[in-house]
Design a protein around this nucleic acid. Structure first.
Length: 431
DNA sequence: TCTGGGGTCCTAGGACCC
DNA sequence: TCTGGGGTCCTAGGACCC
C-alpha cells in the first residue's frame, strides 16, 4: 500500500475551488458577486455549475437550461456559456499556487488537487488557511481545504469545510472534536463519499449499510467479495489506512475524445458525413497538440435519448494498419464509417470521435520513413502551426475549413471573452 | 423546440494458446 | 474421440468522477 512519500507524519490536503466555473466568471465580472449565477454546458444545454445563490434557489446540476430559463428573469439569475479556455488557464494558475505549499501535488481535476502536508493538527489547519489566502491573493477565487490521513478522508474533510461556514473554509480532521466527526459520519449517507455512487449505495442499503459510519464499520473482506476492490479500499481509507496510490504524473493519456451535440438535428447521411469531417479534424488537431498518434478510432452518433421509440446509436471502431495522426486519413475513415452506419432519416443530435491505442509521435520507427518522407512536417503539424499563429478558424480541410460555422454547430449565446488567453479579448480596466 | 463532455478503473467473459 | 487447467490478451460494459 502506498505510504506517505515523506514517511511518518504525512497528511493529505484536498484543495478545491468553490463553484469553480462561476468563480472564474466572477473574477472578470464583479457584477456577478452576490447574484445567482449558473454556467451552462456546451450548446447551452444544461447547468454544470451554480453559485451558492443559485443552489439556494433550488437549481440543480444537470437541469436543462430551457426549463430553468423560464424563471431566470424573475430570480435575477444570470447564465454564462461555458468558456473552457478561460477555466483551463485559471486552473493552471490555481494549481501553481497550491503546489507551492505541498511536499507533493497531484492534480485530480480542473479545480482540485491533493497536496502533501506535514505537521500536527494545529500546523495542518494553519497551512490550510495560508493556501486559501494565497489563492485568493494571486488568483482571486475562493477555495476550501480538507486535511486528513487518507484521500477518502481528505475529501470528506473538505465536505465538512464547505458545509460549515464557521470553519472558514478549512477542516483538518484531526483538529475536530472527536465526537463531532463520528456524529457527522453517522448522519451522512454513504453515497456522500468519494467513490460511492447511487448504484452502490442502493446495494449497500440492502445489507443494512446506510451511513458513512456503517460503511466504516463493515468487514473489508466481505465488501471485497460482495462488491469490488474499489469499495474495499474506501472502507480501509475510512479507517485511516492509506490505500489509494498516488497517481504518478500521468502524462500518457489513454484516449482522446471529441464529442458534441448539435444545435439543430441532422437527418441525412450526407449531413452526418460533413459533421464527421469536422469532428475528425478537431480530434486530429488534439492528437497533434498532444504529440500523439492513434491506432484505433471509434466513430459514434446518437439520436435524442429523450425521444420516444428506438433511436439510432451507431458506434464503429476502426483499427489502423499503422498508428496515425494524419487528418486526411482520419477524416476519410470517419466519413466512411458514418456512411455505413448512419440510418437515413434518423434525427441525429450528437456525434463523436474517440482515439485509442495512443502512442507518442516522437518515437519514429523504421517503417515511418515511408509515410513521412524524411523530416517533412505532417499535414497535422502544418495545420497546427497556422492555427497557432492566426487562430483556430484560420485554416481547415474540406468543410472543416469553413469560417462560417454550419447550421448544426454549437450554440453559445452567453459566452464571456477569453480574458487570459486571447490578446484581442484582454479585459480593459478604466481608471 | 431546447436534456453536456470528458475521462478513469475494474470486472467478466470470450478467444486463443500450451 | 477425448477434452483439464492455467495463462494471456482483448473487449464490452458497468460504475464512478468532475
Amino acid at each position: 500500500m502506498a505510504g506517505s512519500p515523506q514517511g511518518g507524519a504525512g497528511h493529505i490536503a484536498l484543495v478545491d475551488v468553490n463553484n469553480f466555473y462561476v468563480s472564474c466568471e466572477r473574477v472578470f465580472d464583479p457584477r456577478l458577486e452576490g447574484r445567482p449565477v449558473v454556467v451552462l454546458s456546451n450548446n447551452d444545454g444544461c447547468v454544470v455549475a451554480r453559485s451558492a445563490e443559485a443552489k439556494a434557489l433550488g437549481v440543480k446540476t444537470g437541469a436543462p437550461w430551457f426549463q430553468v430559463q423560464a424563471q431566470a428573469k424573475a430570480w435575477g439569475l444570470v447564465a454564462r456559456s461555458s468558456n473552457y479556455e478561460l477555466y483551463g488557464d485559471m486552473s493552471a494558475r490555481v494549481m501553481e499556487v497550491v503546489g507551492r505549499f505541498g511536499a507533493w501535488q497531484e492534480v485530480y481535476s480542473i479545480d482540485e488537487s491533493f497536496v502533501g502536508l506535514m505537521g500536527d493538527a494545529g500546523a495542518l489547519a494553519e497551512s490550510g488557511r495560508q493556501i486559501r489566502a494565497a489563492v485568493d491573493r494571486h488568483v482571486g477565487v475562493p477555495v476550501c481545504v480538507g486535511v486528513a490521513g487518507t484521500k477518502t478522508l481528505a475529501k470528506f474533510a473538505n465536505r465538512i469545510a464547505k458545509q460549515n461556514p464557521a470553519l472558514g473554509g478549512v477542516c483538518a480532521l484531526d483538529a475536530m472534536p472527536a465526537g463531532h466527526v463520528d456524529a457527522v459520519q453517522s448522519r451522512v449517507p454513504a453515497s456522500g463519499l468519494w467513490g460511492v455512487g447511487g448504484r452502490t449505495a442502493e446495494r449497500l442499503k440492502l445489507l443494512g449499510i446506510e451511513s458513512i459510519a456503517d460503511l466504516k464499520a463493515a468487514d473489508p473482506a466481505m465488501i471485497r467479495k460482495k462488491f469490488s476492490v474499489v469499495l474495499q479500499r474506501t472502507v480501509l481509507e475510512l479507517n485511516g489506512t492509506e490505500c489509494i496510490p498516488h497517481a504518478e504524473e500521468r502524462v500518457d493519456k489513454q484516449q482522446i475524445m471529441f464529442s458534441r451535440s448539435f444545435s439543430t438535428p441532422v437527418t441525412t447521411v450526407e449531413g452526418m458525413e460533413s459533421v464527421m469531417a469536422v469532428y475528425a479534424q478537431r480530434g486530429a488537431s488534439r492528437l497533434n497538440q498532444e504529440g500523439l498518434r492513434a491506432s484505433a478510432m471509434t466513430v459514434t452518433a446518437g439520436t435524442s435519448r429523450f425521444a420516444a421509440g428506438e433511436g439510432s446509436f451507431p458506434a464503429v471502431t476502426l483499427r489502423f494498419a499503422a498508428p496515425t495522426q494524419d487528418p486526411i486519413v482520419l477524416i476519410r475513415a470517419a466519413v466512411a464509417a458514418i456512411r455505413q452506419s448512419a440510418v437515413p432519416g434518423a434525427s441525429y443530435l450528437r456525434a463523436g470521435v474517440m482515439f485509442s491505442g495512443l502512442e507518442p509521435v516522437a518515437g519514429q520507427d523504421v517503417l515511418e520513413v515511408f509515410d513521412t518522407a524524411g523530416s517533412q512536417p505532417g499535414v497535422g503539424d502544418v495545420l497546427g502551426e497556422v492555427r497557432g499563429k492566426f487562430g483556430s478558424l484560420a485554416i481547415g480541410l474540406g468543410i472543416g475549413g469553413l469560417a462560417e460555422p454550419p447550421s448544426w454547430s454549437m450554440k453559445r449565446e452567453h459566452s464571456s471573452p477569453r480574458y487570459t488567453t486571447e490578446w484581442a479579448e484582454l479585459p480593459v480596466v478604466r481608471a
